[in-house]
Write a protein that binds this DNA or RNA. Structure first.
Lengths: 176, 176
DNA sequence: TCAAAAGTCTATTACTATTATAGACTTTAT
DNA sequence: ATAAAGTCTATAATAGTAATAGACTTTTGA
């Protein structure tokens, strides 16, 4: 209530015109962001060249993610079949598939829902958007392009692609 | 409160795992959607071949947008310099520039904020994302691609492009 | 066999912004 | 002078996100 009070103090409700309050709509949620970070970490090969087994605490500390929140996220990803886990001493999470077989798009869809900017162009969660004629709706045509391009990138990028790219960047930095 | 109550009735809080409640994050807000629809309508040439002057009521009825909400949105777009308006009888809104000079990206940024899925890849609203090393952050590398591709499409599409495409589609439908 | 480490399950709280509505006011044409 | 239209400000209703809490279960190994 802090922030809202502040704004109200200096004339809150006229914010539509005057203030651009923290507006950031077409973005990942924290859940999505944290989930992707965790998955990338779980896909990064360790010293043995294989993806590691990691505990919630470890991921949460290294990526600065609230542990209890991360717990829920990993559980969701586990129930979706992307992670396996082991309880008890020496347990933890690890990828349920090859890193090359898990796309960023899959992860985002599980955690944040459809990739489409409007439902009427969503492949996985289509809903009519209420325009008089969908076929000739300009918004729909434009947003369809956006959806396709987002999906192309996210579905076309696997966790392995990401970790490979990271290590390439690391090497090119060292070479400087 | 309806929907939430329903869900609470059938075991609400465990929704992270079980339910995929209306999650749809990487999307336009209603404000953004309504604003784009209105702008496209204002850019669609009338019988004289020119973009029309339209009243709030007219747009609101044809696009089924709550009038008072639309009013705020159009005011925002006006204050951002994309629309002109005329008060009084026979007044209304019209584009402040050529339809070819207004991009979808500009409209979305005004109404919904940055296009980037995470702030650390935003060109217009950069903020550090808290990862240990930005340069080698896998999430950042991947989301940078997404941002660029969204920006390329939305900044590269003008209202004129949209209305042209709509009329092309209309013609090809008639030709069937 | 028991204690500690780790994940699992469910509930709940705090917060915040979005979406929408209300109404008084100003400008302009006829 | 009146009606039509936009302007300005405030507020209400909604809803989901992000985070926290705690009791429970499984597993290892001293």
């Amino acid at each position: 209530r802090n922030r809202l009070d502040n704004i109200q103090a200096l004339n809150y409700s006229y914010y539509y015109k005057t203030y651009n309050i923290n507006r950031h709509y077409m973005r990942l949620s924290k859940r999505g962001e944290y989930g992707l970070r965790a998955m990338i970490m779980l896909a990064s090969p360790g010293s043995d060249g294989h993806p590691p087994v990691l505990q919630i605490r470890e991921i949460s500390e290294r990526e600065r993610i609230p542990a209890k929140f991360l717990e829920q996220i990993l559980l969701t990803l586990k129930n979706a079949g992307l992670l396996h886990s082991k309880m008890g001493v020496g347990g933890g999470y690890h990828l349920a598939r090859l890193a090359s077989e898990i796309s960023l798009g899959h992860i985002v869809r599980i955690l944040d829902g459809p990739l489409a900017p409007v439902k009427c162009v969503s492949q996985m969660a289509y809903e009519p958007c209420g325009c008089p004629d969908e076929e000739t709706c300009g918004l729909r045509l434009a947003m369809g392009d956006v959806r396709n391009s987002i999906a192309e990138i996210l579905d076309g990028t696997s966790l392995e692609d990401v970790t490979r790219r990271v290590s390439e960047v690391r090497q090119s930095i060292q070479a400087r």
